[in-house]
Design a protein around this nucleic acid. Structure first.
Length: 455
RNA sequence: GAGGUUAUAGCUCAGUUGGUUAGAGCACUGGUUUGUGGUGCCGGGGGUCGUGGGUUCGAGCCCCAUUAGCCUCCCCA
């Protein structure tokens, strides 16, 4: 006999947790649908040919690969063994667990391109798997809640993502957050302008630490990453950007005026700000963050990240625009933009802030009816049936146990009301109902009972 | 992938320089004038101290290995 244990980086979700998780899922789904996104599900398992090469070399390593069924080792030769794991992998595994929802979505779009109404808006809420090293807020199996729209370059989509995120987080009660926005084109523009074209990634990694380590240390790091003194002196504008958005945009445009792509990026960004304003969003929690890069290499335009404030977790959502996601599946030129919410992290944030609605603590059962055996059982069963017909969540205690036990059960399950039906009550044709929170008991008629429990 | 840290009851943790039957709180369970839970009182069960080796007369404590959790970096939801 072995002790039971969970696979590394995975979790069980008990009833209390599931109630809260379901609440988060429901809120997200509700808003996605409100904005016209349609549901989609794709398999947990995909062919490795679909998955490999989409997330960079590191991503390939983080993919969970599935061993072929049957004698998976039958095709391996001694030669393969000498050539190392890559050769062997091709022969023992041809499927893997999906790593995110975007790539399977791209595959779906390509395979169904003729049926889909373009632009196609879909949302998808499913688990994904990464063979990463587990850490705080980071698991090997976790849910993503994606919403993407493909087949249009309209910046309305970006703006809608911004307003949609506001609505979702406000519905959840996460009121302190900021949507950081950047644009890959601006990053390219900056590197072009400072004379370090193509070094966007190094630039981002360094300036990302600006808040933490300060400007001097960032400049040191830039030197280490192969930027020269001239590059860095030209970068100074970035450290002194104006706070107000109008001034900020004009400074950026002036700074990047010699970079066509950079200017385009700023214009896109500005347009998003304008559209968000036209969409009547009051006090938008959006901020341009030039250090925002995001790991996934397929982003080409806007990049989003949502950060919860005053909590240790941080990033709870990310996304951006990709111009050629479906290109690797033979369908070039299809632009899309999407957002992904991390439920697990949102859960942790809400838990840390203690903002889950109180009624989620309670059982979904509203009434428990007692069971005192043969003499009273039929009345109890009848009562519970009537309550259910009324649409009231109710249950009967399944065994003829001591009343103490039945109350303990109701208490443990946090059922707010218990209807006590003993011989006395049945004779008098009354229903004795106890409020478990206050301890008050009252005798009611059937109609009064139904009324008092009505929502 | 690199580094740090922890592992003792279901949970959170004590456990002295190595020394006899390893403790607490919470949880669980039984009772408390038998038709009343959550608060009181009395009792009870439960740990081969993560796993495998080693040192020692003797290891929860020291050494090595291993596994898992947590944290930092990298990367990410």
């Amino acid at each position: 006999m072995s002790k039971p244990s969970l696979a590394r980086g995975t979790r069980d979700f008990g009833p209390e947790t599931m109630v809260k998780r379901t609440f988060i899922f429901d809120q997200i789904k509700k808003v996605y649908q409100k904005y016209g996104f349609l549901p989609l599900e794709t398999p947990a398992i995909e062919n490795l040919s679909v998955l490999m090469g989409k997330y960079g070399e590191e991503g390939d390593q983080l993919l969970f690969k599935i061993l072929n069924s049957g004698d998976f080792a039958k095709d391996i030769t001694n030669n393969d063994l000498e050539n190392g794991s890559k050769e062997i992998l091709r022969k023992v595994s041809e499927k893997g667990l999906k790593y995110d929802l975007t790539v399977p979505f791209a595959r779906y779009v390509v395979m169904n391109r003729h049926q889909l109404a373009m632009p196609f808006k879909r949302f998808q809420i499913q688990p994904v798997w990464r063979a990463d090293r587990p850490q705080k807020g980071r698991y090997r199996e976790f849910y993503q809640c994606d919403a993407d729209v493909v087949g249009t370059e309209s910046l309305i989509c970006e703006a809608e993502i911004v307003t949609m995120l506001h609505e979702i987080f406000e519905n959840l009660g996460v009121s302190e957050f900021v949507i950081k926005i950047n644009n890959r084109k601006i990053l390219s523009g900056i590197t072009e302008t400072i004379g370090a074209k193509g070094k966007e990634v190094d630039l981002c990694v360094a300036i990302d630490k600006l808040d933490k380590i300060g400007k001097e240390k960032v400049e040191e790091e830039l030197l280490q990453r192969g930027f020269n003194a001239e590059n860095i002196s030209k970068l100074q504008t970035l450290f002194t950007l104006p706070i107000t958005q109008a001034a900020m945009f004009s400074t950026l445009k002036n700074w990047l005026k010699d970079s066509e792509i950079g200017i385009l990026g700023v214009q896109e960004l500005e347009e998003i700000w304008i559209l968000v304003d036209k969409m009547q969003l009051q006090n938008p929690k959006i901020a341009f963050d030039p250090s925002l890069a995001r790991g996934l290499s397929y982003y080409t335009g806007a990049i989003f990240e949502v950060k919860a404030l005053n909590v240790s977790i941080g990033s709870i959502s990310g996304g951006g625009r990709y111009d050629n996601l479906t290109g690797t599946f033979g369908m070039p030129g299809l632009s899309g933009v999407g957002i992904s919410l991390g439920v697990d992290r949102i859960y942790d944030v809400m838990e840390e802030l203690g903002i889950f609605p109180e009624q989620l603590q309670l059982s979904s059962t509203k009434v428990m009816v007692t069971n005192f055996g043969d003499e009273t059982l039929s009345k109890s069963l009848e009562t519970v049936a009537i309550l259910r017909q009324k649409g009231i969540n109710s249950e009967i205690y399944p065994e003829n146990s001591k009343i103490k036990k039945q109350f303990e059960y109701a208490d443990k399950k946090k059922i707010p009301f218990v209807v006590i039906l003993g011989t006395e009550e049945i004779e008098k044709e009354i229903y004795l109902i106890k409020n478990m929170k206050t301890g008050e008991q009252s005798t009611l008629t059937l109609n009064q009972l139904k009324e008092s429990l009505d929502v």
